[in-house]
């Protein structure tokens, strides 16, 4: 009886080790992030990108609705008047000062929904870590830049 049990036990061990061996030959699951780009869905919300019209004018008109709806109060908008010499947007006013505090922002996307001109889009940039809080308050010149591509955008 004990010999039968020993054979059965040995068979069980072989069976279990076969499972281990199977995974030895599969492709590793790990995404080698800093060397490789990661795969993101298009609905991922990262750093904001302020949009421009095709003729180069800014879409933002400085209405401040994004700042009003922001649950974390991370956005600060100060509108300024366009003149014929210095024209930034197509309408009367433009965002003279547009700042997003990324230490506060929770990337909920309410600002994108509130924007009446479609000037604000949440992009796919996620690598935003900085060494000081001051660097994380990003102004218009940073937000107008498109995101540095760290990711491959998948089909939705």
């Amino acid at each position: 009886m004990s010999i039968v049990n020993a054979v059965k036990g040995f068979y069980q061990i072989l069976k279990a080790m076969a499972v281990t061996l199977k995974y030895f030959f599969t492709k590793p699951l790990t995404v080698q992030y800093p060397k490789e780009k990661i795969r993101l869905y298009p609905r991922f919300r990262g750093r904001h990108e302020l949009q421009r019209r095709p003729d180069g004018l800014e879409l933002c008109v400085g209405c401040g609705l994004c700042a009003a709806i922001c649950p974390a109060r991370a956005i600060y908008v100060e509108a300024a008047e366009n003149t014929d010499e210095a024209r930034y947007s197509a309408t009367e006013r433009y965002a003279g000062l547009y700042e997003i505090n990324y230490t506060r922002c929770i990337f909920c996307g309410f600002c994108e929904e509130a924007c009446p001109t479609g000037a604000l889009k949440l992009g796919n940039e996620f690598a935003l870590a900085r060494a000081s809080r001051g660097d994380l308050v990003m102004g218009k010149e940073t937000l107008l830049q498109p995101a540095t591509p760290h990711a491959i955008i998948l089909e939705d």
Partner: peptide, 26 residues
């Protein structure tokens, strides 16, 4: 940072694990 000195801040709510790795490389 009101109680302890912070070296790297990561924005996000919550940040992706890759965002943590970026902070770690920094």
């Amino acid at each position: 940072d009101k109680i302890i000195p912070v070296d790297v801040y990561i924005p996000g709510c919550p940040p992706r694990p890759e965002a943590l790795f970026y902070a770690l490389t920094q």
